[in-house]
Nucleic acid binder design. Structure first.
Length: 205
DNA sequence: CCCTGATTCGC
DNA sequence: GCGAATCAGG
């Protein structure tokens, strides 16, 4: 793989977004995080906040904290697959079939809180008590108390991705315990996620 | 261990 | 210019 303009662009964008080198490498494919880091440096977009090119010295830059605003922003929970990329412009000026969903009145009439959350793609089915064995259910409940409560961005290939809580509230996180090799979930959650058909049938009704 | 970025240096 | 190997951390 080579650093085509497009790939460099992606690199720049993701780096600017604060994505890690390994994440960028995964996204690009065909390169390691080392390659990404190397490129980042060569491009000169390393870090150094206000850096200002090659200032001689003047390292003693005071004003450590801007007293004005404190944009204490947690890492934005950007959806993993968020691809602002080029929006497919349907170049079809035809009548907009449906009226604008948003009322002219700039006010969002939605009850906020419970509603809009994209909910993302199909999440693993939440156990509905009657199809999970009592043992597994108990195990899960026990495990969820020990859950690492990871956020979406903190998940890796080795962390349990079982969602816990209501995505529409702050009361939402991912299990995060060590996942079974090759599985997306930890042992307990694998237990409720992958059940033999027979087990389900026997328990049904 | 898992992960992070930074640097070096042969290619 | 490139990126694996390595370093230095968290």
């Amino acid at each position: 793989m080579s650093w085509t303009d497009e790939r460099v662009e992606t690199l720049k964008r993701m780096w600017a977004e604060g994505q890690s080198a390994s994440q960028i490498a995964k996204e690009l494919g065909g390169v390691t995080r080392n390659a990404v880091i190397g490129k980042v440096h060569r491009l000169g977009l390393s870090n150094r906040v206000a850096g200002g090119k090659e200032e001689d010295e003047a390292e003693a830059a005071p004003a450590p904290a801007a007293p004005a605003a404190a944009p204490r922003a947690e890492p934005r929970p950007e959806p993993v697959a968020a691809r602002p990329e080029a929006a497919p412009r349907p170049a079809t000026p035809e009548r907009p079939a449906a009226a604008p969903a948003a009322p002219a009145g700039n006010v969002m009439p939605i009850p906020l809180r419970k509603a809009i959350v994209p909910a993302g793609q199909p999440l693993p089915p939440q156990p509905s008590a009657n199809e999970i064995s009592p043992e597994a259910l108990a195990s899960v409940r026990e495990v969820e108390k020990r859950a690492r409560k990871l956020t979406l961005m903190e998940l890796t290939e080795r962390t349990c991705k079982w969602p816990i809580g209501d995505p529409a509230t702050d009361d939402f996180w991912f299990c995060g315990l060590p996942s079974l090799p090759g599985k997306p979930y930890c042992e307990a959650h694998v237990g409720v996620a992958f059940q033999p058909m027979s087990a389900r049938r026997d328990r049904r009704r």
